[in-house]
Design a protein around this nucleic acid. Sequence first.
DNA 1: CTGCATCCTTAATGATACTG
DNA 2: CAGTATCATTAAGGATGCAG
Lengths: 120, 120
Amino acid sequence: MSDPVWNVMLATCPSRTSLARVANKWTAMIVIALSDGAARFGAIRDRVGGISAKVLAETLRDLERDGLLTRKAYDEMPPRVEYDLTPLGLTLREPLTALGRWAETHIAEVLAARDEYDRR
Amino acid sequence: MSDPVWNVMLATCPSRTSLARVANKWTAMIVIALSDGAARFGAIRDRVGGISAKVLAETLRDLERDGLLTRKAYDEMPPRVEYDLTPLGLTLREPLTALGRWAETHIAEVLAARDEYDRR
DNA sequence: CTGCATCCTTAATGATACTG
DNA sequence: CAGTATCATTAAGGATGCAG
């Protein structure tokens, strides 16, 4: 028996939920923030500019649930929690850092396009 | 004079707005839908399962504004409008189809991870 | 057919305060 | 430090009707 034929273009295909999680700016930035290895909650928050503790905690929980990263809480005071990409999460590093680089590489063209569009 | 050093990890960097547009499920699916060439509004809506006319029209306008696709309205009745990726938009084809394939390829692992997470 | 306008509902995010 | 809880705000999305 082979797998179902997953297709993200179908509204009801389970793979759609996965695309929604992965094609997401917070996911992209968190994966980028973890590209060099494990990091603590506070370090991730510092790296992902503008993210609130609430959104970060929620997104990290979602990513852990989807098997993209691990959460390791040390029983210390004050608390220390480390997040790290799983092997599955590591497979996202390339496509998502590529998207981040795309945004940086082409922003000048995008800004120019917006400017021209808005002048009409 | 060189360009500013764009960095999507900075909340106020203009490239962040570009990442937000590009790391987005609707954007990904629309780019995928246009991978084989120009398509009409209705054809895109049919290919991107579950998208409403409103969201599609809004997203297409945003993508046109950012210079990622062109919109060509023919003066006919009933109307016909064709959308096509620009050279800039074409550079997104690879990273975004890669994300779509990722979602389809790894959804089984993701579902298994969710299952295990939820059983705790 | 391809939208836009409107209204409505839901989801995402932000702000603040607080606890182990 | 790493969250959670709560409340308020904003953005995203859906439904319907209508127009060129």
